[in-house]
């Protein structure tokens, strides 16, 4: 999906609101481009032969790319006037090429300043990432 042109207002977002799901095809291109764009040159993120030598069946996504995708997932919903205040993630099973990760999320907390979105990214092996994002929306108390 593309980013909306306006952001939801803080007052209009409620605990329990679900975010639109984001389906991310885990291509080799995504894994390698994400690793290099984040200056992470560990061979397990771009070289299948060396990844196998290290005991991994294939290259896999690095945590900086996962972190970026979680941020994108929330701002795809929250729009250009949202400000991320915190992103907290824990990794589970790896993202290997050929898989698909589906990011889903729900608003679980709301203060005067931020809303908290709980995020899960699941692939065919289980949860690749779980975490939470604090985002400041228009109309929130700064």
């Amino acid at each position: 999906m593309t980013v909306p042109t306006t952001s939801p207002r803080h007052a209009d977002v409620q605990v329990g609101d679900a975010l639109p799901e984001l389906e991310v095809p885990i291509t080799r291109t995504l894994i390698v481009a994400g690793a290099i764009a984040s200056r992470d040159y560990q061979d397990v993120h771009h070289d299948p032969d060396l990844a196998r030598e290290h005991g991994s069946p294939d290259i896999f996504m690095n945590i900086l790319t996962t972190n970026g995708l979680v941020g994108r997932f929330v701002t795809d919903w929250a729009g250009p006037d949202a400000v991320l205040r915190a992103v907290s993630i824990r990794l589970g099973v790896p993202n290997y090429p050929g898989d698909t990760m589906v990011l889903s999320g729900r608003v679980t907390e709301k203060t005067d300043a931020v809303v908290t979105v709980e995020v899960t990214g699941a692939n065919s092996k289980g949860n690749h990432v779980t975490g939470s994002v604090d985002v400041e929306l228009p109309g929130a108390v700064r």
């Binding site: 991310v24 481009a33 290099i36 764009a37 250009p80």
Partner: peptide, 16 residues
């Protein structure tokens, strides 16, 4: 440039 490369990798189209 580095921001653009990361956004392209992630498919992040946030214009800001």
């Amino acid at each position: 440039a580095m921001i653009r490369h990361m956004c392209e990798a992630l498919g992040d189209e946030n214009p800001v």
